[in-house]
Design a binder for these strands. Sequence first.
DNA 1: TCAAAAGTGTTAACCATACACCCATGC
DNA 2: GCATGGGTGTATGGTTAACACTTTTGA
Lengths: 229, 229
Amino acid sequence: MPFTYEYPRPAVTVDCVVFGLDQGVLQLLLIKRNSPPFAGCWALPGGFVDQNETLDAAARRELEEETGLREVFLEQLFTFGDPGRDPRGHTVSVAYYALVRQDRHVPQAATDTSDAVWYSVAKLPKLAFDHQRIISTAVARLQGKVRYQPINFELLPRKFTLTELQGVYEAVLERALDKRNFRKKILAMGLLAETKEKQQGVAHRAPQLYQFDAAKYKKLTKQGFNFEL
Amino acid sequence: MPFTYEYPRPAVTVDCVVFGLDQGVLQLLLIKRNSPPFAGCWALPGGFVDQNETLDAAARRELEEETGLREVFLEQLFTFGDPGRDPRGHTVSVAYYALVRQDRHVPQAATDTSDAVWYSVAKLPKLAFDHQRIISTAVARLQGKVRYQPINFELLPRKFTLTELQGVYEAVLERALDKRNFRKKILAMGLLAETKEKQQGVAHRAPQLYQFDAAKYKKLTKQGFNFEL
DNA sequence: TCAAAAGTGTTAACCATACACCCATGC
DNA sequence: GCATGGGTGTATGGTTAACACTTTTGA
Protein backbone atom coordinates (compact mmCIF):
# COMPACT_ATOMS: atom_id res chain seq x y z
CA MET A 1 0.00 0.00 0.00
CA PRO A 2 1.73 3.16 -1.22
CA PHE A 3 1.88 6.51 0.53
CA THR A 4 1.92 9.69 -1.49
CA TYR A 5 2.98 13.21 -0.53
CA GLU A 6 3.10 16.50 -2.36
CA TYR A 7 6.79 17.00 -1.59
CA PRO A 8 9.59 14.46 -1.27
CA ARG A 9 10.31 13.23 2.24
CA PRO A 10 13.42 11.63 3.62
CA ALA A 11 12.92 8.34 5.45
CA VAL A 12 13.19 8.62 9.25
CA THR A 13 14.92 5.95 11.31
CA VAL A 14 16.22 5.50 14.84
CA ASP A 15 19.51 3.85 15.74
CA CYS A 16 20.61 2.81 19.21
CA VAL A 17 24.12 2.78 20.61
CA VAL A 18 23.80 0.25 23.42
CA PHE A 19 26.50 0.33 26.07
CA GLY A 20 27.10 -2.51 28.46
CA LEU A 21 29.83 -3.64 30.75
CA ASP A 22 31.54 -7.00 30.92
CA GLN A 23 34.34 -7.73 33.36
CA GLY A 24 34.89 -4.00 33.68
CA VAL A 25 35.21 -3.53 29.92
CA LEU A 26 32.88 -1.17 28.06
CA GLN A 27 30.97 -3.05 25.41
CA LEU A 28 28.64 -2.24 22.55
CA LEU A 29 25.77 -4.30 21.21
CA LEU A 30 25.89 -4.83 17.45
CA ILE A 31 23.67 -6.61 14.96
CA LYS A 32 24.81 -8.65 11.99
CA ARG A 33 23.03 -7.43 8.88
CA ASN A 34 21.54 -10.18 6.72
CA SER A 35 20.32 -8.15 3.79
CA PRO A 36 21.75 -5.38 1.62
CA PRO A 37 22.95 -2.75 1.81
CA PHE A 38 25.98 -3.72 3.88
CA ALA A 39 24.86 -7.37 4.12
CA GLY A 40 27.21 -9.25 6.41
CA CYS A 41 28.37 -6.02 8.07
CA TRP A 42 27.78 -5.15 11.70
CA ALA A 43 25.40 -2.33 12.50
CA LEU A 44 23.58 -0.60 15.31
CA PRO A 45 20.13 -1.89 16.20
CA GLY A 46 17.53 0.40 14.69
CA GLY A 47 14.89 0.82 12.04
CA PHE A 48 12.14 2.97 10.64
CA VAL A 49 9.92 5.18 12.74
CA ASP A 50 6.27 4.13 12.46
CA GLN A 51 3.39 6.41 11.67
CA ASN A 52 2.34 8.39 14.74
CA GLU A 53 5.03 6.90 16.92
CA THR A 54 7.20 9.05 19.17
CA LEU A 55 10.93 8.87 18.54
CA ASP A 56 11.56 7.44 22.01
CA ALA A 57 8.95 4.76 21.43
CA ALA A 58 10.47 3.87 18.08
CA ALA A 59 13.91 3.50 19.66
CA ARG A 60 12.56 1.29 22.45
CA ARG A 61 10.55 -0.81 20.02
CA GLU A 62 13.47 -1.40 17.69
CA LEU A 63 15.71 -2.18 20.62
CA GLU A 64 13.35 -4.83 21.90
CA GLU A 65 12.65 -6.28 18.46
CA GLU A 66 16.29 -6.61 17.56
CA THR A 67 17.93 -7.39 20.88
CA GLY A 68 15.22 -8.37 23.34
CA LEU A 69 16.27 -5.57 25.70
CA ARG A 70 13.62 -3.49 27.45
CA GLU A 71 13.32 -0.97 30.22
CA VAL A 72 16.82 0.30 29.83
CA PHE A 73 18.19 3.80 30.25
CA LEU A 74 17.69 5.48 26.87
CA GLU A 75 18.38 9.02 25.78
CA GLN A 76 18.42 10.86 22.49
CA LEU A 77 21.93 11.46 21.22
CA PHE A 78 22.02 13.34 17.93
CA THR A 79 20.38 13.30 14.52
CA PHE A 80 22.33 12.32 11.44
CA GLY A 81 20.89 13.31 8.09
CA ASP A 82 23.60 13.59 5.49
CA PRO A 83 22.07 12.63 2.15
CA GLY A 84 24.81 10.12 1.37
CA ARG A 85 24.62 8.15 4.59
CA ASP A 86 22.24 5.48 3.26
CA PRO A 87 22.73 4.23 -0.32
CA ARG A 88 19.00 3.51 -0.60
CA GLY A 89 18.16 7.19 -0.43
CA HIS A 90 17.94 10.20 1.82
CA THR A 91 17.48 8.91 5.36
CA VAL A 92 17.45 10.90 8.55
CA SER A 93 18.46 8.87 11.58
CA VAL A 94 17.71 9.99 15.11
CA ALA A 95 20.39 8.27 17.18
CA TYR A 96 19.91 7.17 20.79
CA TYR A 97 22.24 5.75 23.35
CA ALA A 98 21.28 3.19 25.94
CA LEU A 99 22.92 1.91 29.11
CA VAL A 100 22.24 -1.68 30.05
CA ARG A 101 22.63 -3.17 33.51
CA GLN A 102 25.17 -5.90 33.72
CA ASP A 103 22.70 -8.45 35.09
CA ARG A 104 20.32 -7.95 32.16
CA HIS A 105 23.05 -8.16 29.63
CA VAL A 106 22.22 -11.37 27.80
CA PRO A 107 20.84 -10.41 24.42
CA GLN A 108 18.24 -13.16 24.01
CA ALA A 109 19.99 -15.25 21.42
CA ALA A 110 16.39 -16.08 20.58
CA THR A 111 15.49 -13.05 18.46
CA ASP A 112 14.62 -14.63 15.14
CA THR A 113 16.42 -12.69 12.44
CA SER A 114 19.52 -11.28 13.96
CA ASP A 115 22.56 -12.18 15.92
CA ALA A 116 23.20 -9.47 18.47
CA VAL A 117 26.71 -9.59 19.86
CA TRP A 118 28.64 -7.57 22.43
CA TYR A 119 31.86 -6.02 21.18
CA SER A 120 34.45 -4.22 23.24
CA VAL A 121 34.32 -0.53 22.35
CA ALA A 122 38.07 -0.66 21.90
CA LYS A 123 37.90 -3.33 19.18
CA LEU A 124 34.95 -2.71 16.92
CA PRO A 125 34.52 -4.42 13.56
CA LYS A 126 33.83 -2.58 10.30
CA LEU A 127 30.42 -0.99 10.56
CA ALA A 128 27.59 -0.30 8.11
CA PHE A 129 26.46 3.19 7.07
CA ASP A 130 27.89 6.01 9.20
CA HIS A 131 27.50 3.94 12.35
CA GLN A 132 31.13 4.34 13.31
CA ARG A 133 30.58 8.08 13.45
CA ILE A 134 27.41 7.67 15.50
CA ILE A 135 29.32 5.51 17.96
CA SER A 136 32.10 8.06 18.29
CA THR A 137 29.52 10.71 19.05
CA ALA A 138 27.93 8.45 21.65
CA VAL A 139 31.22 7.69 23.39
CA ALA A 140 32.03 11.38 23.57
CA ARG A 141 28.60 12.13 24.97
CA LEU A 142 28.87 9.39 27.55
CA GLN A 143 32.28 10.63 28.66
CA GLY A 144 30.92 14.11 29.07
CA LYS A 145 27.69 13.12 30.75
CA VAL A 146 29.24 10.82 33.29
CA ARG A 147 30.94 13.79 34.93
CA TYR A 148 27.83 15.62 35.91
CA GLN A 149 25.10 13.00 35.97
CA PRO A 150 25.07 9.78 37.95
CA ILE A 151 24.28 7.56 34.99
CA ASN A 152 27.08 5.07 35.42
CA PHE A 153 24.91 3.18 37.89
CA GLU A 154 22.83 2.13 34.90
CA LEU A 155 25.69 -0.07 33.80
CA LEU A 156 25.98 -2.01 37.07
CA PRO A 157 23.66 -4.40 38.86
CA ARG A 158 21.36 -2.80 41.43
CA LYS A 159 23.86 -3.62 44.17
CA PHE A 160 27.52 -3.01 43.54
CA THR A 161 30.82 -2.43 45.28
CA LEU A 162 32.70 0.85 45.22
CA THR A 163 35.51 -0.80 43.33
CA GLU A 164 33.08 -1.87 40.63
CA LEU A 165 31.70 1.64 40.41
CA GLN A 166 35.17 3.09 40.14
CA GLY A 167 35.86 0.56 37.40
CA VAL A 168 32.93 1.87 35.37
CA TYR A 169 34.24 5.42 35.59
CA GLU A 170 37.66 4.25 34.57
CA ALA A 171 36.28 2.26 31.64
CA VAL A 172 34.19 5.16 30.39
CA LEU A 173 36.74 7.91 30.96
CA GLU A 174 39.64 5.74 29.84
CA ARG A 175 41.88 6.75 32.70
CA ALA A 176 42.78 5.54 36.17
CA LEU A 177 41.33 7.19 39.27
CA ASP A 178 42.73 7.32 42.79
CA LYS A 179 40.90 4.84 44.98
CA ARG A 180 40.83 6.83 48.20
CA ASN A 181 39.85 10.08 46.57
CA PHE A 182 37.15 8.40 44.52
CA ARG A 183 35.57 6.81 47.60
CA LYS A 184 35.77 9.99 49.61
CA LYS A 185 34.08 12.01 46.92
CA ILE A 186 31.36 9.61 45.92
CA LEU A 187 30.44 8.80 49.51
CA ALA A 188 30.47 12.48 50.52
CA MET A 189 27.65 13.10 48.03
CA GLY A 190 25.39 10.92 50.11
CA LEU A 191 23.80 9.27 47.08
CA LEU A 192 24.94 5.77 47.96
CA ALA A 193 23.17 3.67 50.54
CA GLU A 194 25.02 0.82 52.18
CA THR A 195 23.12 -2.42 51.95
CA LYS A 196 23.38 -5.03 54.65
CA GLU A 197 25.05 -7.38 52.24
CA LYS A 198 28.60 -8.06 51.32
CA GLN A 199 29.79 -9.66 48.15
CA GLN A 200 30.02 -13.44 48.55
CA GLY A 201 32.52 -16.02 47.48
CA VAL A 202 35.53 -13.87 46.73
CA ALA A 203 39.00 -14.97 47.70
CA HIS A 204 39.67 -11.83 49.72
CA ARG A 205 37.98 -9.56 52.20
CA ALA A 206 34.29 -9.33 51.23
CA PRO A 207 33.44 -5.86 49.99
CA GLN A 208 30.40 -3.88 51.07
CA LEU A 209 27.54 -3.61 48.57
CA TYR A 210 25.93 -0.25 47.90
CA GLN A 211 22.80 0.96 46.16
CA PHE A 212 22.21 4.21 44.34
CA ASP A 213 19.53 6.28 46.06
CA ALA A 214 17.63 7.77 43.12
CA ALA A 215 15.01 9.44 45.31
CA LYS A 216 17.66 11.29 47.28
CA TYR A 217 19.35 12.38 44.07
CA LYS A 218 16.10 13.79 42.76
CA LYS A 219 15.48 15.64 45.98
CA LEU A 220 18.98 17.12 46.14
CA THR A 221 18.85 18.11 42.49
CA LYS A 222 15.71 20.13 43.11
CA GLN A 223 17.57 21.95 45.86
CA GLY A 224 20.26 22.96 43.40
CA PHE A 225 22.72 20.19 44.21
CA ASN A 226 25.20 19.52 41.42
CA PHE A 227 26.65 16.09 40.86
CA GLU A 228 30.26 16.45 39.74
CA LEU A 229 32.60 13.61 38.81
CA MET B 1 4.27 16.40 -8.58
CA PRO B 2 3.54 13.67 -6.05
CA PHE B 3 6.07 11.48 -4.29
CA THR B 4 5.17 7.94 -3.42
CA TYR B 5 6.75 5.57 -0.91
CA GLU B 6 6.03 2.01 0.14
CA TYR B 7 5.70 2.97 3.80
CA PRO B 8 4.38 6.13 5.41
CA ARG B 9 6.98 8.77 6.24
CA PRO B 10 6.79 11.62 8.68
CA ALA B 11 7.63 15.04 7.30
CA VAL B 12 11.06 16.34 8.35
CA THR B 13 11.59 19.97 9.26
CA VAL B 14 14.25 22.12 10.90
CA ASP B 15 13.56 24.87 13.41
CA CYS B 16 16.04 27.46 14.63
CA VAL B 17 16.21 29.06 18.04
CA VAL B 18 18.10 32.25 17.30
CA PHE B 19 19.69 33.99 20.26
CA GLY B 20 20.83 37.59 20.15
CA LEU B 21 21.74 40.25 22.61
CA ASP B 22 20.37 43.75 22.89
CA GLN B 23 21.53 46.14 25.59
CA GLY B 24 22.72 43.18 27.57
CA VAL B 25 19.37 41.41 27.37
CA LEU B 26 19.10 37.94 25.84
CA GLN B 27 16.72 38.01 22.88
CA LEU B 28 15.10 35.52 20.56
CA LEU B 29 14.17 35.95 16.93
CA LEU B 30 10.56 35.01 16.15
CA ILE B 31 8.49 34.96 13.00
CA LYS B 32 4.84 35.93 12.69
CA ARG B 33 2.93 33.15 10.96
CA ASN B 34 0.66 34.27 8.15
CA SER B 35 -1.02 30.98 7.28
CA PRO B 36 -2.60 28.16 9.24
CA PRO B 37 -2.04 26.30 11.39
CA PHE B 38 -1.39 28.84 14.14
CA ALA B 39 -1.90 31.80 11.75
CA GLY B 40 -1.11 35.01 13.59
CA CYS B 41 0.97 33.18 16.19
CA TRP B 42 4.68 33.64 16.65
CA ALA B 43 6.98 30.78 15.75
CA LEU B 44 10.59 29.81 15.28
CA PRO B 45 12.08 30.26 11.84
CA GLY B 46 12.21 26.92 10.10
CA GLY B 47 10.75 24.73 7.39
CA PHE B 48 10.97 21.51 5.47
CA VAL B 49 14.20 19.73 4.69
CA ASP B 50 14.78 19.46 0.95
CA GLN B 51 15.63 16.32 -0.90
CA ASN B 52 19.31 15.46 -0.54
CA GLU B 53 20.00 18.40 1.71
CA THR B 54 21.99 18.03 4.92
CA LEU B 55 20.22 19.05 8.11
CA ASP B 56 22.73 21.82 8.75
CA ALA B 57 22.23 23.16 5.26
CA ALA B 58 18.47 23.11 5.67
CA ALA B 59 18.72 25.04 8.92
CA ARG B 60 21.01 27.66 7.36
CA ARG B 61 18.82 27.96 4.29
CA GLU B 62 15.64 28.45 6.28
CA LEU B 63 17.35 30.92 8.55
CA GLU B 64 18.47 33.03 5.63
CA GLU B 65 15.15 32.77 3.80
CA GLU B 66 13.11 33.79 6.78
CA THR B 67 15.38 36.23 8.58
CA GLY B 68 18.14 37.24 6.19
CA LEU B 69 20.78 36.01 8.67
CA ARG B 70 23.80 34.07 7.40
CA GLU B 71 27.14 32.83 8.60
CA VAL B 72 26.07 32.61 12.20
CA PHE B 73 27.07 30.12 14.86
CA LEU B 74 24.66 27.21 14.44
CA GLU B 75 24.51 23.89 16.24
CA GLN B 76 22.06 21.02 16.38
CA LEU B 77 19.99 21.05 19.55
CA PHE B 78 17.55 18.16 19.76
CA THR B 79 14.97 16.40 17.62
CA PHE B 80 11.29 16.65 18.45
CA GLY B 81 9.02 14.06 16.92
CA ASP B 82 5.90 13.61 19.00
CA PRO B 83 3.08 12.72 16.63
CA GLY B 84 0.76 15.42 17.99
CA ARG B 85 3.15 18.33 17.64
CA ASP B 86 1.92 19.45 14.22
CA PRO B 87 -1.83 19.32 13.51
CA ARG B 88 -1.14 18.75 9.81
CA GLY B 89 0.34 15.34 10.51
CA HIS B 90 3.33 13.51 11.89
CA THR B 91 6.30 15.85 11.62
CA VAL B 92 9.78 15.34 12.96
CA SER B 93 11.62 18.57 13.64
CA VAL B 94 15.36 18.75 14.04
CA ALA B 95 15.89 21.83 16.18
CA TYR B 96 18.97 24.04 15.97
CA TYR B 97 20.14 26.96 18.00
CA ALA B 98 22.03 29.92 16.63
CA LEU B 99 24.02 32.73 18.20
CA VAL B 100 24.03 36.03 16.36
CA ARG B 101 26.59 38.77 16.76
CA GLN B 102 25.21 41.98 18.06
CA ASP B 103 26.44 43.99 15.09
CA ARG B 104 24.66 41.72 12.61
CA HIS B 105 21.47 41.75 14.52
CA VAL B 106 19.15 43.61 12.18
CA PRO B 107 16.79 41.08 10.68
CA GLN B 108 16.40 42.52 7.20
CA ALA B 109 12.91 43.92 7.52
CA ALA B 110 13.03 43.25 3.79
CA THR B 111 12.28 39.52 3.77
CA ASP B 112 9.08 39.33 1.77
CA THR B 113 6.65 37.13 3.64
CA SER B 114 7.47 37.42 7.26
CA ASP B 115 8.07 39.87 10.01
CA ALA B 116 10.95 38.67 12.11
CA VAL B 117 11.10 40.34 15.51
CA TRP B 118 13.42 40.13 18.50
CA TYR B 119 11.74 39.25 21.77
CA SER B 120 13.33 39.23 25.19
CA VAL B 121 13.66 35.62 26.33
CA ALA B 122 12.07 36.66 29.60
CA LYS B 123 8.87 37.89 27.93
CA LEU B 124 7.90 35.63 25.07
CA PRO B 125 4.49 35.69 23.41
CA LYS B 126 2.33 32.61 22.90
CA LEU B 127 4.05 30.35 20.45
CA ALA B 128 2.94 27.97 17.71
CA PHE B 129 3.37 24.18 17.84
CA ASP B 130 5.68 22.96 20.61
CA HIS B 131 8.04 25.86 20.05
CA GLN B 132 7.90 26.96 23.67
CA ARG B 133 9.31 23.58 24.63
CA ILE B 134 12.00 23.79 21.99
CA ILE B 135 13.01 27.19 23.32
CA SER B 136 13.20 25.91 26.90
CA THR B 137 15.46 23.12 25.71
CA ALA B 138 17.63 25.63 23.87
CA VAL B 139 17.96 27.93 26.88
CA ALA B 140 18.95 25.00 29.08
CA ARG B 141 21.50 23.88 26.52
CA LEU B 142 22.95 27.34 26.18
CA GLN B 143 23.27 27.68 29.95
CA GLY B 144 25.06 24.38 30.14
CA LYS B 145 27.29 24.93 27.14
CA VAL B 146 28.44 28.37 28.13
CA ARG B 147 30.27 26.92 31.12
CA TYR B 148 32.63 24.75 29.18
CA GLN B 149 32.77 26.26 25.71
CA PRO B 150 33.63 29.81 24.78
CA ILE B 151 30.55 30.41 22.66
CA ASN B 152 29.37 33.58 24.32
CA PHE B 153 31.71 35.54 22.09
CA GLU B 154 29.34 34.71 19.25
CA LEU B 155 26.82 37.06 20.78
CA LEU B 156 29.13 40.08 20.90
CA PRO B 157 30.76 42.17 18.20
CA ARG B 158 34.25 41.06 17.19
CA LYS B 159 35.72 43.56 19.65
CA PHE B 160 34.22 43.89 23.08
CA THR B 161 34.95 45.01 26.61
CA LEU B 162 35.28 42.65 29.56
CA THR B 163 32.22 44.22 31.13
CA GLU B 164 30.21 43.42 28.02
CA LEU B 165 31.45 39.84 28.09
CA GLN B 166 30.57 39.49 31.74
CA GLY B 167 27.13 40.87 30.90
CA VAL B 168 26.58 38.09 28.38
CA TYR B 169 27.41 35.45 30.96
CA GLU B 170 25.10 37.09 33.43
CA ALA B 171 22.29 37.33 30.88
CA VAL B 172 22.64 33.69 29.87
CA LEU B 173 23.18 32.25 33.33
CA GLU B 174 20.66 34.58 34.95
CA ARG B 175 22.86 35.46 37.87
CA ALA B 176 25.39 38.09 38.86
CA LEU B 177 29.11 37.38 38.72
CA ASP B 178 31.90 39.02 40.66
CA LYS B 179 33.73 41.50 38.47
CA ARG B 180 37.25 40.96 39.76
CA ASN B 181 37.02 37.19 39.80
CA PHE B 182 35.49 37.10 36.35
CA ARG B 183 38.30 39.19 34.88
CA LYS B 184 40.99 37.23 36.63
CA LYS B 185 39.66 33.94 35.39
CA ILE B 186 38.87 34.87 31.83
CA LEU B 187 42.19 36.66 31.33
CA ALA B 188 44.13 33.84 32.95
CA MET B 189 42.93 31.49 30.21
CA GLY B 190 44.85 33.52 27.68
CA LEU B 191 42.13 33.36 25.06
CA LEU B 192 41.56 37.08 24.91
CA ALA B 193 43.84 39.38 22.97
CA GLU B 194 43.94 43.06 23.85
CA THR B 195 43.36 45.24 20.84
CA LYS B 196 44.99 48.63 20.54
CA GLU B 197 41.59 50.25 20.74
CA LYS B 198 39.48 51.56 23.54
CA GLN B 199 35.79 52.12 23.42
CA GLN B 200 34.97 55.66 22.28
CA GLY B 201 32.52 58.27 23.38
CA VAL B 202 31.55 57.00 26.80
CA ALA B 203 31.08 59.32 29.75
CA HIS B 204 33.64 57.53 31.88
CA ARG B 205 37.04 55.95 31.61
CA ALA B 206 37.34 54.34 28.19
CA PRO B 207 37.44 50.56 28.50
CA GLN B 208 39.91 48.34 26.72
CA LEU B 209 38.60 46.33 23.77
CA TYR B 210 39.46 42.63 23.49
CA GLN B 211 39.18 39.99 20.81
CA PHE B 212 38.65 36.27 21.19
CA ASP B 213 41.63 34.31 19.87
CA ALA B 214 39.97 31.31 18.21
CA ALA B 215 43.24 29.89 16.88
CA LYS B 216 44.75 29.81 20.34
CA TYR B 217 41.64 28.14 21.71
CA LYS B 218 41.86 25.43 19.08
CA LYS B 219 45.52 24.86 19.84
CA LEU B 220 45.02 24.67 23.59
CA THR B 221 42.03 22.37 23.21
CA LYS B 222 44.15 19.91 21.27
CA GLN B 223 46.60 19.93 24.17
CA GLY B 224 43.85 18.90 26.54
CA PHE B 225 43.03 22.37 27.84
CA ASN B 226 39.56 22.64 29.31
CA PHE B 227 37.62 25.88 29.19
CA GLU B 228 35.61 26.22 32.40
CA LEU B 229 33.26 29.06 33.23
C1' DT C 1 50.61 -18.70 55.20
C1' DC C 2 49.86 -16.70 50.98
C1' DA C 3 47.46 -14.06 47.54
C1' DA C 4 44.15 -10.71 46.47
C1' DA C 5 41.49 -6.97 46.96
C1' DA C 6 39.11 -3.98 50.75
C1' DG C 7 39.39 -0.31 53.37
C1' DT C 8 41.28 3.91 55.48
C1' DG C 9 43.86 9.75 56.67
C1' DT C 10 46.97 13.28 56.14
C1' DT C 11 49.37 16.83 53.87
C1' DA C 12 50.40 20.29 50.50
C1' DA C 13 49.12 22.83 46.48
C1' DC C 14 45.76 24.99 44.21
C1' DC C 15 41.39 27.33 43.31
C1' DA C 16 37.20 29.78 44.38
C1' DT C 17 35.16 33.32 46.88
C1' DA C 18 34.40 37.53 49.13
C1' DC C 19 35.22 42.07 49.31
C1' DA C 20 36.32 48.14 48.49
C1' DC C 21 38.65 51.75 46.62
C1' DC C 22 40.99 54.79 43.24
C1' DC C 23 41.04 56.07 38.19
C1' DA C 24 39.88 58.11 33.78
C1' DT C 25 36.55 60.40 31.10
C1' DG C 26 32.63 63.36 29.41
C1' DC C 27 29.37 66.51 30.62
C1' DG D 1 33.45 68.79 40.16
C1' DC D 2 30.47 65.15 39.72
C1' DA D 3 28.54 61.07 37.89
C1' DT D 4 29.66 56.86 35.60
C1' DG D 5 31.60 52.78 34.93
C1' DG D 6 36.80 50.89 34.47
C1' DG D 7 40.18 48.78 36.57
C1' DT D 8 42.78 46.47 40.31
C1' DG D 9 44.76 42.75 44.93
C1' DT D 10 44.52 40.14 49.00
C1' DA D 11 43.16 36.95 52.48
C1' DT D 12 40.50 32.98 53.67
C1' DG D 13 38.34 28.65 53.29
C1' DG D 14 37.51 24.84 50.66
C1' DT D 15 38.72 21.43 47.21
C1' DT D 16 41.69 18.51 44.81
C1' DA D 17 45.68 15.49 44.39
C1' DA D 18 49.19 12.71 45.85
C1' DC D 19 50.48 9.04 48.46
C1' DA D 20 51.14 3.47 51.53
C1' DC D 21 49.89 0.44 54.77
C1' DT D 22 46.79 -2.68 57.47
C1' DT D 23 42.71 -5.79 57.27
C1' DT D 24 39.91 -9.54 55.90
C1' DT D 25 38.98 -13.60 53.51
C1' DG D 26 39.37 -18.01 50.86
C1' DA D 27 42.25 -21.26 49.02
